[in-house]
Nucleic acid binder design. Structure first.
Lengths: 334, 334
DNA sequence: TTGAAAGCGTTACCAA
DNA sequence: TTGGTAACGCTTTCAA
């Protein structure tokens, strides 16, 4: 940077100030400096910058490399986060830690190698939150804890997602719908998405005078197959299925076919909180209610940056999902 | 750190040296210093360390957030890499960049915010390699370029993987095997895994006096379904399938069932270069030839660190795969 | 609008 | 075996 200053005939500090923009610099010298930087192929050194300014200009996202999801969902969030970070001139790195390693997250945060941390797949009582905050690093939650306080959080509006799916099928004429949720274990643990979706489904059905039929299901194709088969056995009149379980989806199809049912002639299937990528993976393009995906990551980053800059941040938000009608839903058989 | 020095009654530099171990420190003072560090809850500041030592102690891995794989395969590699890095006291971060953004990789490397870069899903002519190296940052390849030179690379021994799978099925009595490869586009592009597997399958079959039947197939369940149906139509005598295509696998099953074939009674299915996680996702636990997964990441990191330390590094390696016999393979029908 | 210089928290060189 | 101190490449305060 001294080289740039010399070549532009100014002091080192002026170069720094044209870079940071924290002090007015006359147009003339700015041009000379920029020219000098171009000539010399100058690049700011982030490490030195971080040391001097006590800001790394890096955001980290705890990325669960061993989660149970297919990756597509997480990656959409990451994508949105990356975009938002880049726009704000921040780098976004992923920390490969699974959700049950709060100590690791704590250690990484304590290193102060990132200005803020994004937490994905946040549980109701997530030790990672305290881990990060105790290190004095602000964090944003994708999902939310039981009591998020005035933290930055971005969650999915599961109530709306379920409502939209039910409305779609009921609107097509269905009266008997089954809901395949995620695992019983996560339900028992009070994991937000699972509990809220279960309640939302019951509400959506009963408010329409319909009987809610639902089941939890491990996040595995085989589990989906068994759960669906059981549901069909107990409720042979079911003509529509809501599935909020990426992997189980694949088993659901198998079970329906085993039962001799065609999609969507005999039975409709709607994925809930699914990405387009997953929908494409289905045998026939799956009708689904999409996750807000990128928007979640984006909002989380924006909120986190507001926090960092001391701007007041918007309160937490539940983002809505959008119905995408494709080829697995239609009117019930006559 | 000055605080630690004061409390231990030594100079700042001595504290630094007990930390780095680059200079002998008497046992007595070492103990005092460690005590002082514990008392004060001292933590080294990685940013300052990086600036002074010109080493970040961070390794980055270009993580394709929008790859076509299911994530499980990539994540196994990441896991191995993380472990190896941690053992060597390095941090490993993931850079969320897709493989077709070499400029991004170049920019990140030029920031010199990592001491070395791991590249996954390396193509035969991968611009990322030059991008990283031109920034003066060493890299290791998972997969390999057409001419890896004396770079560090770790690839899968696809020849062995195919051979093992063929041997397994032929050993069970099969004479007519079909191979479902990855996309035609990647074959045409000369992508290593696809080209090598195709050749290996032909070799394994012809060397046994058998006719090799194979097809390329997009990385999608529907594509797998169609490809398998076509293969069956053209070669009704097929009794075994090798599938080196994570997503197509799900479609293969559907096609076989559509044809009224039971697994493994009528037809056997073997996944090639698949992870256990994928195997578990199959309707019945899939017989497969596993990827070396974590070993790939581990070896790549080890090689990269050797490079960084100026130790001579081992040449590139093809890691072998292991056959896992589960429930989708058996003798052909009589 | 600009310059000079004091840090930022380490490492590593030069002496002792 | 230890201490003092100049970097490392920036940001930012204090002066002008």
């Amino acid at each position: 940077m001294q080289d740039v200053a010399d070549r532009a005939g100014v002091s080192l500090s002026t170069v720094s100030y044209t870079l940071t923009g924290k002090r007015p610099v006359s147009a003339a010298t700015r041009v000379r400096i920029e020219q000098a930087m171009a000539d010399l192929g100058f690049r700011r050194h982030p490490v030195a910058r971080a040391l001097a300014s006590r800001r790394t200009h890096v955001l980290a996202i705890a990325y669960p490399v061993f989660g149970v999801s297919l990756g597509a969902t997480l990656n959409e969030i990451v994508h949105g986060a990356v975009d938002a970070a880049r726009e704000a001139d921040y780098d976004l790195v992923l920390w490969p830690v699974s959700s049950d390693e709060p100590e690791l997250v704590a250690e990484l945060a304590a290193q102060r190698t990132a200005d803020g941390v994004l937490l994905m797949e946040v549980a109701l009582d997530d030790p990672r939150v305290a881990a990060v905050e105790q290190a004095g690093v602000p964090c944003a939650l994708i999902g939310r804890t039981a009591d998020p306080g005035d933290r930055v959080w971005v969650d999915i509006d599961f109530e709306q997602a379920i409502e939209v799916a039910v409305e779609h099928l009921v609107g097509l004429g269905h009266r008997h719908l089954g809901f395949v949720n995620r695992s019983q274990a996560s339900f028992d643990a009070g994991y937000g998405p699972v509990v809220r979706a279960a309640a939302a489904f019951d509400a959506a059905m009963t408010s329409r005078g319909l009987e809610p039929v639902s089941t939890t299901c491990d996040v595995l194709p085989v589990a989906g197959r068994r759960a669906t088969a059981r549901l069909l056995a107990e409720h042979p009149d079911l003509t529509g299925f809501l599935v909020m379980n990426e992997l189980a989806l694949f088993g659901v199809h198998g079970a329906l076919r085993d039962a001799g049912l065609r999609i969507p002639d005999d039975v409709s299937v709607v994925g809930v909180a699914i990405t387009g990528e997953i929908s494409d993976m289905y045998d026939h393009p799956l009708t689904y209610v999409s996750t807000p995906g990128p928007a979640q990551g984006r909002r989380a980053v924006e909120g986190l940056l507001e926090l960092l800059d001391g701007r007041r941040h918007a309160p937490g938000t539940n983002l809505p999902c959008a119905l995408r009608v494709r080829e697995t839903s239609g009117p019930p058989p006559a």
